[in-house]
Structures are given as C-alpha cells and as structure tokens.
Amino acid sequence: MADPLAHFEVVEVNGEPATEAALRVPALNTYGHFTAMQVRGGRVRGRDLHLARLDSATRELFGAGLDGERVRELIRHALGDISDASARVYVHWPEGEKEARVMVTVRPPQTKSDRPHGLMSVPYARPVPHIKHLGGFGQTHYLLAAERAGFDEALLTAPGGVVTEGAVTNIAFWDGSSVVWPQAPSLLGITMALLEPRLPSVRRPVTLADLPSYASAFITNSQGFAPVDRIDDVAFTVDTELMGAVTAAYEAVEWDAI
C-alpha cells in the first residue's frame, strides 16, 4: 500500500514529526483552516498577510487568536535546511486542548504555469467564503468536473450567474483601463491582496452575461498568476502588456523572512 504522505517532504504537528495519533485530527475533523505559501530562500511574499489570515480565522472559528511568532517558529522548524518549498499551515483546535494545533507541511516548490488557462463556470459558491477553510468538497468536485471537460479551472458562480472566484484561484478582468476584481463574497487570496493595490484596480459585480465585454482576464493563487484565454465559450485575448504589468507588480513585492 502506498504511503499517503510520500509526496510530502515534511509533515509536523506542533513542531513534532506527525504521528498516526496526531494525524487522526485532520483525518477525521475538517473544521479548520489553512494558508498556503511559496518559500524561496527562506522568505515568503506577504508574510504578514498570511499570519493575519491565520489569526483572524482562528479567532472566528475557535474564539481565540493564533500567535504569529509561534507560527513562524513552527514553519522555520519544519523547513529546517530547506530554503525553497511549498509550505502550508493547517489549524485545528481539538476540544479540551489549551491552544490551537498547528500542522505544517513542506513540499517541493511550485510555480503556476504561465500558459493560458481555460475556465468552466459552475453553479456553486463557497460557504463562509472569506475563510480559507477545510473540507472543500464542492470546490474539488467542480474542479475535477472542469478538468474532465477539458478546462484548467472551475469558475464559481452565485445565483444569477454572479462571478465570485475560481475553485482554487481569484479572478480579475481587464476592461481596457482597470483591473476589475469581482465584487462578491469570496476569499481574499494573498496574491490578489498583493496585486490589487499595485495595479489600477476596481471592484464591481461581474456576471457571466458581462464576460463578452471584457477583453482579457487572469487568475491568481498562492503559486502565482496566469492569463485566461476562455471561460466556457467566451474567448479572451492574452494581453501581453497587461500580463507584463501584472508580472512587474508581483515581482516588486518584497520577500519577508520567515
């Protein structure tokens, strides 16, 4: 039987190598949240945004915060001598325990392919969308359905065809003068949070019926960003000037030491 953890470089719970007993919590309890980051040279873009996300979600879900310095120490411990990686921090708070249980996973680094991506719209919106929570059955279901249909990502929509976000991404549209981020309940991804103030951005409602009015689009997530060349049967131009501006804005973000 294949080891289910074989694709991980490191899995630690509260700074200790994960045991079978420790893994029972994430295996049997999906009430929790996480953040995902790319580490390069022991640094990460948007470190303080990641820490604030973890603290805020822990307060909302469990009634008490999560100390950022503790999180940084646990990530550093899990990384050890690894300088470049994909790291995730998962938070649970089992009943009866005095503090949140923090699991850190470390895998090889990932970078989003810059090839154009196709998206398939689906009638689904994440519950409690402002939290990067666990147990995303709907997201996984529709993402796999999109991939089976020949697309790269699912575009989640609320009633009336209101565009919210991708299954594992945020999406932005270009109207010729501004980057339009859909104004709808969704997760504020860290890459989106870094790019939005560095680009000529606006937020306004976007529906599926509006898509032909936009010339270009792109998606973002913890691995980076990529242009969109189609949503359903609506084609988009890959605007090299726009993507150049996105690249410049992203590369201008400083890397923070973990």
Rank of each mutant, 00 (worst) to 15 (best):
M1V: 08
A2P: 15
A2W: 10
P4K: 07
H7Q: 13
H7W: 14
E9Q: 13
E9T: 11
E12Q: 15
N14P: 05
G15H: 12
G15T: 04
T19L: 03
E20A: 14
A22L: 11
V25Q: 05
N29G: 00
F34H: 09
A36N: 10
R40N: 09
V44E: 01
R45D: 00
R47E: 10
D48A: 10
L49R: 12
H50S: 13
L54Q: 03
A57N: 10
R59T: 05
R59D: 04
R59H: 11
E60Y: 02
F62A: 00
G63Q: 00
A64R: 13
G68A: 12
E69N: 15
E73C: 08
L74I: 03
I75P: 06
R76A: 15
A78C: 04
A78I: 12
D81H: 14
S86I: 02
A87Q: 05
V89K: 14
Y90D: 06
H92W: 14
E97A: 00
K98G: 09
K98W: 07
E99Q: 12
M103Y: 11
V104I: 09
V106Y: 01
P108T: 09
Q110F: 09
S113Q: 02
S113I: 06
R115I: 01
H117D: 07
G118L: 05
S121K: 04
S121I: 06
R126C: 01
R126N: 01
P127H: 11
V128K: 00
H130M: 12
K132I: 02
G135T: 04
Q139R: 13
H141K: 14
Y142V: 07
L143A: 14
A145I: 02
A149S: 14
G150W: 04
A154E: 04
L156K: 03
L156S: 03
A158H: 13
P159Y: 13
G161I: 02
V162R: 15
T164C: 15
T164G: 05
G166W: 08
G166T: 06
V168R: 06
T169E: 11
N170W: 01
N170K: 03
A172C: 09
F173S: 06
F173R: 02
V180P: 05
W181E: 00
P182G: 01
Q183L: 03
A184E: 02
P185V: 09
S186L: 06
L187M: 13
L188H: 12
T191N: 11
A193G: 09
L194A: 06
L195T: 10
E196W: 03
P197G: 04
L199F: 12
P200K: 04
P200F: 13
R203N: 07
R204S: 05
A209N: 12
A209F: 08
P212K: 11
S213E: 14
Y214N: 02
Y214I: 00
A217M: 02
A217D: 06
I219N: 09
I219K: 10
I219F: 08
T220F: 03
Q223W: 04
G224W: 08
F225Q: 05
A226T: 03
P227C: 08
V228I: 13
V228R: 01
V228L: 08
D233M: 09
A235T: 14
T237S: 12
V238H: 05
V238P: 00
D239T: 09
D239H: 13
E241N: 12
E241A: 15
M243W: 01
G244H: 07
A245M: 11
V246F: 10
V246T: 05
A249F: 08
Y250Q: 04
V253P: 10
E254D: 15
W255T: 05
D256Y: 03
A257G: 14
A257T: 15
